[in-house]
Simulated scan of single mutants.
Amino acid sequence: MKDDGGRRMVRPGSETAKMLAGELYDPMDPDLVAARANARDLCRALNATADAEADTRRQILRELFGRGGDSVWMQPPFWCDYGAHIELGERVFFNFNCVVLDVCPVRIGSFTLFGPGVQILTPLHPLNAEQRRSREYGRAIEIGEDVWVGGGALILAGVRIGDRAIIGAGSVVTRDIPEGVLAAGNPCRVIREIGE
């Protein structure tokens, strides 16, 4: 079910609501299992399309993403957990083999570019082994406008990346990155500001 803005509605107190709020939740909840299965089916269909099937690809992207499917530029294959929790600005670009695990919201600004093999990972797991058997949680990720993320970078749960930042290939982003900087490494650190 969707609201007037086309967003999927979430029942208060449900495992989905807990998940999106960053609380411990049961990933085997039937509603979540069904939502993941739907997203995986859409990803499989997307990944099977040829470049010439632009209309089919666009229809799938509109259905998959919470927002931004109308203008996203996608080079399959692409995989995500739910898709509905991914909100894109205008003309975001994903190169081949990108993965977005969206157990919490992922918001990406307009004209942001992702190189091949980038992973955006919101899930986290409890340190307590017994809890880890049946519960997980996550933290939202926000990526600004005009960001360029190099191939193979990992963007981890709870991170914010500012507008116009550049993240070097292979970086592991574990903390916030301010706007207008070049950052790289493991862990990713600011190297310098980006001048004109």
Rank of each mutant, 00 (worst) to 15 (best):
M1R: 07
K2H: 13
R7S: 08
P12T: 08
S14E: 07
S14A: 04
A17D: 15
K18H: 07
M19G: 02
M19Q: 03
M19P: 02
L20N: 09
A21T: 01
A21G: 01
A21Q: 06
Y25N: 04
Y25F: 13
D26L: 13
M28T: 14
D31T: 14
D31S: 12
A35N: 11
N38P: 01
N38T: 13
N38K: 14
R40L: 12
R44C: 00
R44Y: 00
A45D: 15
N47Q: 06
N47L: 04
A48Q: 13
A48H: 03
A50D: 14
A50K: 14
A52M: 00
D55K: 11
R57D: 00
Q59H: 09
Q59R: 15
Q59G: 00
Q59E: 15
L61Q: 13
L61F: 01
R62P: 03
E63R: 14
G68T: 08
G69N: 01
S71T: 15
S71M: 06
V72P: 10
V72F: 07
V72W: 09
W73I: 15
M74G: 07
P76N: 09
F78W: 13
F78R: 02
C80V: 04
D81R: 03
A84F: 11
H85G: 08
H85T: 08
I86A: 12
L88G: 06
E90N: 14
V92Y: 01
F94G: 05
N95Y: 08
V100E: 08
V100H: 09
L101Y: 04
C104T: 11
C104A: 12
V106S: 04
V106A: 02
T112N: 03
L113A: 15
P116V: 04
P116K: 09
G117M: 05
Q119G: 09
I120V: 15
L121E: 11
L121F: 10
P123D: 06
P123T: 02
H125V: 09
P126L: 13
P126A: 13
L127G: 15
N128K: 11
N128C: 11
N128L: 09
A129P: 15
A129V: 14
E130A: 11
Y137A: 03
G138C: 03
G138F: 01
G138A: 02
A140S: 05
E142S: 15
I143M: 02
D146F: 12
V147L: 12
G150H: 05
G150Y: 06
A153Q: 02
A153V: 05
A153H: 01
I155L: 15
I155C: 07
A157I: 01
V159T: 08
R160E: 13
A165W: 03
A165G: 06
I166F: 06
I166N: 01
I167S: 05
I167H: 13
I167P: 08
G170Y: 06
S171T: 08
V173F: 08
V173I: 07
V173N: 12
T174S: 10
I177K: 01
I177P: 03
P178E: 13
L182T: 06
L182K: 05
A184Q: 04
A184R: 09
A184L: 04
N186I: 14
I191E: 05
I191W: 10
R192L: 00
R192E: 00
E193F: 01
G195H: 08
